[in-house]
Amino acid sequence: MNERTVTVDGIAVTDFGGAGRPMVALHGSFGRASIFDGLARELAGRARIVAPDQRGHGYTGRADSYASDDFVGDAAGVIERLGLAPVVVFGHSHGGITAYRLAARHPELVSALVIEDVGPVMRPPEIARPILDVRGWPAEASTKNQLAEAIRSRGVPDPGYFMQSAEPADGGWRLLFDWDDMMAVQAGGVGDWWEEWLGSTCPALVLRGEHSTLLPAELAARMIARRPGSRLVEFAGAGHWIHDDDPAGVARAVAGFLGELGLSPGRSA
């Protein structure tokens, strides 16, 4: 793979390169494009992942607004500017909400959807804890281990996902996002999104981890039953970050789905 990063209207976009059908990948809250490193390697030759650092995340700057519509508009702009449409869009968690809302609002941009571990409802009582309260959490420390321990002390047994957004800075380590911004990002994803999940007709693959806290089994079943052209793949033993827990399994499911689509590959970014 020949990975490269470009900037599109202020948004840092990583093109993991290589052969295969282009697939735009949208990370979740607290994430960044590089969380798809492993998936890009697993799908090498079958899919070429193009992933933005979404507003407020990674190397893309902070923003004044983190409403769901803002993320949809950003994704649409990246796809249009890079000439990828219509393209398969993969979305994890908050990125999954953005993906299916994008398909409903801009069907000309999206040829198919892969939704990882998020449903059409993100609010109580269906989802007991749609927002993780991270106000006042540590943003920097002298060492990487100290930063990880500081996050662990907030009740996170495995801070690995957050630490994927950590980097050296000024003799220490810092996170590439602001915790208060992440509260706003999460709040923007809270709601009832049934109308927009049902608002597109392109093929859709939904991935669910057995131990998911954000996509209960009953909700996933209704999600598939109500939308023609959708199907569900469940991953035994996996949690919310299925692409980390079972990267080979996710790659097999996605590669099989892409193979069934019979779509012509998009243009290079």
Rank of each mutant, 00 (worst) to 15 (best):
177 F>H: 13
218 E>V: 13
194 W>S: 09
198 L>I: 03
199 G>W: 10
62 R>T: 14
131 I>C: 04
8 V>D: 03
25 A>W: 01
216 P>N: 08
97 I>T: 06
126 E>G: 01
56 G>M: 05
216 P>I: 10
202 C>A: 10
20 G>D: 05
90 F>R: 01
31 G>E: 05
242 I>E: 09
6 V>M: 03
207 L>H: 04
168 P>Q: 10
182 M>S: 09
57 H>S: 13
251 A>I: 10
174 R>C: 13
96 G>W: 01
27 H>D: 02
118 V>C: 00
57 H>Y: 10
81 R>Q: 11
197 W>Y: 12
251 A>Y: 05
112 A>H: 08
140 E>S: 15
228 P>R: 14
38 G>Y: 01
153 S>F: 00
36 F>Q: 03
17 G>Q: 09
9 D>R: 11
165 S>G: 06
206 V>M: 08
210 E>H: 07
100 Y>R: 03
92 H>C: 05
192 D>M: 04
104 A>H: 02
217 A>G: 09
237 G>P: 10
83 G>S: 04
116 E>Q: 12
261 L>F: 14
201 T>P: 00
237 G>D: 11
208 R>M: 07
76 A>T: 03
144 K>M: 12
241 W>R: 09
265 P>D: 12
226 R>L: 15
167 E>T: 15
66 Y>D: 11
137 W>L: 13
109 L>Q: 02
237 G>C: 14
60 T>H: 09
55 R>F: 02
190 V>K: 01
98 T>L: 02
156 V>A: 06
108 E>L: 01
61 G>I: 04
103 A>S: 09
179 W>F: 15
266 G>T: 08
250 V>I: 15
82 L>G: 00
265 P>G: 13
30 F>G: 04
252 R>S: 14
78 V>G: 01
130 P>C: 10
147 L>Y: 05
61 G>F: 07
72 V>A: 00
169 A>V: 12
36 F>E: 04
217 A>K: 14
168 P>M: 12
64 D>R: 15
68 S>Q: 11
193 W>Y: 06
195 E>L: 09
94 H>P: 00
66 Y>H: 14
206 V>S: 03
149 E>V: 14
197 W>M: 05
149 E>H: 14
264 S>R: 14
117 D>F: 00
110 V>E: 05
111 S>Q: 10
256 G>C: 08
109 L>M: 03
7 T>F: 06
177 F>T: 11
196 E>G: 01
129 R>A: 15
63 A>G: 05
224 I>N: 12
92 H>D: 04
57 H>C: 12
34 S>W: 04
54 Q>G: 03
218 E>G: 04
60 T>V: 09
254 V>D: 06
34 S>M: 08
155 G>V: 12
231 R>P: 03
9 D>P: 00
131 I>V: 15
27 H>G: 02
1 M>A: 15
232 L>C: 07
64 D>Q: 15
190 V>R: 04
179 W>T: 15
94 H>E: 01
128 A>Q: 11
118 V>G: 00
113 L>N: 05
84 L>I: 05
240 H>P: 06
7 T>D: 08
191 G>M: 11
55 R>I: 09
73 G>Y: 00
158 D>H: 06
135 R>M: 10
156 V>Y: 06
62 R>F: 09
24 V>K: 00
157 P>A: 14
249 G>F: 09
94 H>V: 01
